[in-house]
């Protein structure tokens, strides 16, 4: 599984953070056609993003967010800020990625 991509760019006092996660985002409502069985829910529930250790954005998600989710947000920051993004899914899976603002 490819890791989450995290990019942050500084422009005119504002840092734009863009993240692309790698996750199936199953709602738990989809059926396998051949067997008629439901695919169990498996989606990201919580996201936390920090800049220099301070939380700038947190999010709660349902399975209604698309597969391999994309997230972008903006905050007042500076070049060189340390960005960290952590996601957790409903099966206990988690990943943390870090990046520097360019």
């Amino acid at each position: 599984m490819a890791a989450t991509k995290l990019k942050a760019r500084f422009k005119k006092d504002v840092v734009t953070v863009k993240a692309l996660m790698n996750h199936p985002m199953e709602t738990g409502l989809r059926k396998i056609k051949e067997t008629g069985k439901l695919v169990p829910a498996h989606h990201i529930t919580e996201i936390s993003c920090t800049a220099n250790g301070k939380e700038v954005l947190s999010a709660n998600w349902s399975g209604g967010v698309s597969k391999n989710p994309y997230l972008a947000f903006k905050y007042a920051g500076a070049k060189g800020d340390e960005i960290a993004l952590t996601w957790k899914d409903n099966k206990g899976g988690t990943e943390t990625v870090t990046s520097k603002v360019k």
Binding site: V14, K54, V56, L57, A59, S62, V65, S66, A76
Partner: peptide, 19 residues
């Protein structure tokens, strides 16, 4: 679908892709 909570310094902006 989703909730976003803005922390200190965060702009009221969020972008994502939904079903």
């Amino acid at each position: 679908v989703a909730t976003f909570t803005m922390g200190e310094g965060a702009k009221a902006y969020a972008a994502t892709r939904i079903k």
